[in-house]
Structure formats: C-alpha cells, structure tokens
Write a protein that binds this DNA or RNA. Structure first.
Lengths: 255, 255
DNA sequence: CGTAATGTTGACATCACTCAAATAGGGTGG
DNA sequence: CCACCCTATTTGAGTGATGTCAACATTACG
C-alpha cells in the first residue's frame, strides 16, 4: 500500500519480539510481566511513599502545561493520554493499563505535554520525581525498572506510528484489538472478552480514522465471525477467533 | 478532518512548548540546547570512554534483533531509525541529528527493535549501558541528561503520531520542513537552507504517504513561493518564507 | 556520454471521510 | 414501569484526498 523506503540491508533473524504482529499471550510472558509489576510496586513502597489517589472516569491525572513534578503509576483502572496542539487539534496518543507509568513526557521540558485522563475507576500512585531519583540511587533495581518502562514506551510509540503509517483502516482496527488483547494477556486477564471503555470516536481518534470507519471495520469483523459482540451494547468485544484476527491483519498488511 | 475525541476538559493556558506547531528558533533555546549537547558530551568523556565510530551513508549503527548493550550518541551526521515488522513492512520512525541519543528502544526487551542507519558521514559514540548506569550513579547530572533525552524522545514521538493522525498530507510535509528547520535552529545551524538527505520515498515513508504525494506537496509549496529549491537538484530546500509556511500549516490544521 | 536512480506530473482508481438518517441503549423523572 | 431524551452506534450515499500506474525529465555517477 504505502511505499517502503528502500533501505538496503540484510535483516538478521529476528531474535526478539520487537513489534511483532502476532499476539502471544503466553503464560511465561504473563507471569514475568506480572512479577515485574509486583516488583515495581513493592520497590516503590519500600523506598518511597507514593501518594495514592482514587480516580474516576473523566478525572484528569495531570494536564498539559502543568509543571512536571511527579511520575505516576497506574495501579488499577484505565487511562488515556491525550496530546493537544497549539491550534486546537487533540489526539489520543496512548492508553495505559495496570502497571504502566505515566508522565515521562514532562521530564524534558519541565512541564507536561499531554493530558492523562482516567477512563474508569482506578488507583494512581504519584511519585515525586526527585524522590524517585534519590530512591533509584539507593536501589539500582528500581532505576532498571524505570528505564525499562521508558524504553517500553518508546518502542510502543514507534509501533503505533508504524501501524498508522503502514496499515489500512481495517487493519489498524484489527491490530488495535490484538494489542489490547495482548495487554490484557500480559496482565493475566482474559484475552478473549475485551471490554472497550472507549467510544468509537475515541478509538477512531487514537487510530487516526473517523468513528464511522471504526464502526464499519468492527461490523465487518463481526460479519466475518472473527469477533462478536456480547449481548446488549457494542462495547464488549469477544475475539471469537484470535488466529483469524491475526490472519486478517497479516492479509491486510501483505497487500 | 478527523474526529476529535470529545474529552471534555478545560485547558489551562499552555505554559510550555509542548508540541506547539510554530517553529521558534530563538537564540536562547539554541544556545541552551547547544550547551546541553556540549555538557552531555563532556560528562560522557569525563566519566566514561565512549567508543567513537565513523560512519558513512548506509552504514548501520545497530540492527533490530541485535542484543542491546550500548546506547549511542550522534556527535555528527544524520541517522534514520527504521522499524521493521514481522510481516515485512518497514517504516522510518525517527530521524536523529547531532546530540541525539539512540537505542533506547532496546532497553526494555534486551534487544534492539529498530535499525539505525546513517544517512550521511558522521561520528557515533557508543556507550556501554552498564558503564553508563555506573557513571550516572557517580554523576547525577548525567542521569538527568539521560532522562531528559528519553523524555524528549517520548514527547517527540507523540508529536509525530499526532501529525500523522490529524494533519493532511500537505500539512504533514509543511510540518516536516518546519520541524527540520527547528532541529537545525536548535543546533545553531542555518534554518533557511535545508539540505534533505532523504529521497522522496524516504520522506513519504516517514510521513506516511506516497512519494508522489511528497513531490506534489513540495511542488505546490514552491509554486506558492513558500519554499524554493536551490539550483540543480531538488534536495536542497530553502524556506523562503518561514511565516508563510507556519501559516500554511495552521490553515491546513484549521480545516 | 550512457545508464540507473531519482524526481515530476498527469490520469485514474479507491479508500476513507463527510453528511445524513435510522436504530439502539442508557438514564431520568413521572 | 413507561415515556422521554440524549448519546452512541450503525449504515448508506456521495465526494474528496490520496494512492497507483505510467510517462517523462532530471540528476548523479561511473
């Protein structure tokens, strides 16, 4: 579909996950990631006093323009990261789940560049950045976890950019569902029954397409029996056939 | 053009740059950023022994799949970061200039998720990650710079995502030129005469559009006297009227 | 020079957006 | 429990922006 830059180079066999398309909700990964979250939270509480805050849908955790003072960890719930441009455009640029860090974007400029808005009831831990650095000096393991979180975010954002740039609208929706499922799987949750807490407009905004296009893509996936909706309400998606969904995506990408 | 998610929230006055559209090649910023680069390089040499490497156009600094061991700093030259997917898509997801760090994407997974390919002759410094962490423990200022670089990258990637998702093709090309100019300005280089070291195909890949669309957008900007090409070869762009370019972008964004 | 790579431009096709209308759900007050 | 409203969603029809294909022009390079 889109042109590939002809970067001529031999590709060594991909030894690592990278931004692979397939979902792999393997038990190992899931357990490892769960341990990592637990370890992070544990280290944080042992070394610092995170300020816990209960948030409800619509609450903002931080807003663009506010001075950067803390990083945040999502202990439970679901958060969207919204980028705002000077000329009024706004764009969902990230989704955060349990264990995810938030607020890195503020480190460089000294103030936040996005809004973080809760999409559901949940608990957020705020960690003063200076205190965190001090704690990291004492506990190198914590620094390692912090860097891993930042690295993961960078790698993930690049994956998003690639999806938007190289996949058709339908493929992006399929990819979105797969990624959501993978996120759930990593956290040990069931991956077949996905409860989207977002409107079609928000999904479309996140994926860079009109809400009608999201709706049509989901309808088509449902028509082809790749997904289905649980009774009453179209926000709960069941990935009826994960393999078919992966194949669907690969077929789109191959064109 | 695209639908905005109706996140209802009041926006506090933007006190900071964030992902503002306008270019501001102010002398202050430029000087500050120049100092920051110098400080980074100085700190690195004082605390560590970076491994310097001369690269030429086409050389790869690291490749996806290689084990992650080092971070890299570009001392001079110009590098593109290319993301590869399992199904063969490839996408330029980042461009690096003097002073930029590379390789963060490998921290989380333990192996690199992208290729970094030199587009021009330059010098790259490799810094062993473990040694860097040790040095950071001794020199907190270095850790601060490292985190700022990571935060900047995250913020920048989100800006890219937003551009691709919310701007028309022509606007993205205009934005691309403005950002390039801003990068040059930050580094104290002339901002009016831009030497694109990329083919139309690479630019299009980076911006998520066909190379023909890039060509048409540049032609139109030239026709409207907003930019022009220096004699012989269409790779050297002169931003004839920076304000007009900014206005052009804002006009596109307003639609 | 001659050849290959790159860039430009036109014609046409198509994907995805816009506009519009109908349906469905969820919540609220009577 | 029902009537009502409001939002979210679905679906269709038409259009426009952008991709694709193709021809040609220009430049770079050996």
């Amino acid at each position: 579909m889109l042109q590939a830059a002809d970067t001529s180079h031999e590709l060594p066999p991909m030894a690592c996950a990278g931004n692979a398309v397939a979902v792999r909700p393997q038990r190992d990964d899931s357990a490892a990631f769960g341990r990592q979250i637990a370890q992070t939270l544990e280290l944080l509480t042992s070394a610092l006093v995170p300020q816990r805050r209960l948030v409800h849908a619509g609450d903002s955790i931080y807003q663009a323009g506010q001075p950067f003072e803390s990083l945040y960890i999502l202990n439970s719930g679901f958060v969207k990261i919204v980028n705002l441009s000077a000329d009024g455009r706004e764009q969902v640029v990230g989704l955060k789940f349990r264990g995810d860090w938030m607020g890195f974007d503020g480190i460089a400029e000294g103030c936040h560049g996005c809004d973080a808005v809760a999409m559901d009831t949940g608990e957020v831990w705020a960690i003063g950045y200076d205190a965190l650095l001090a704690a990291c000096a004492a506990a190198p393991a914590l620094l390692k976890l912090l860097h891993e979180a930042m690295g993961r975010e960078i790698a993930h954002d690049r994956g998003s950019l690639m999806s938007v740039c190289t996949l058709s609208a339908e493929a992006r929706v399929a990819d979105f569902l797969l990624q959501w499922g993978a996120s759930m799987a990593l956290r040990g949750q069931r991956t077949d029954a996905i409860t989207l807490r977002m409107t079609r407009a928000e999904i479309g905004n996140y994926l860079g397409m009109a809400l009608e296009t999201v709706s049509r893509a989901l309808s088509r996936l449902a028509r082809e029996k790749i997904i289905d909706f649980v009774e009453k309400g179209r926000r709960d998606v069941r990935i009826a056939d994960p393999q078919a969904l992966t194949h669907f995506l690969q077929r789109c990408a191959a064109l």
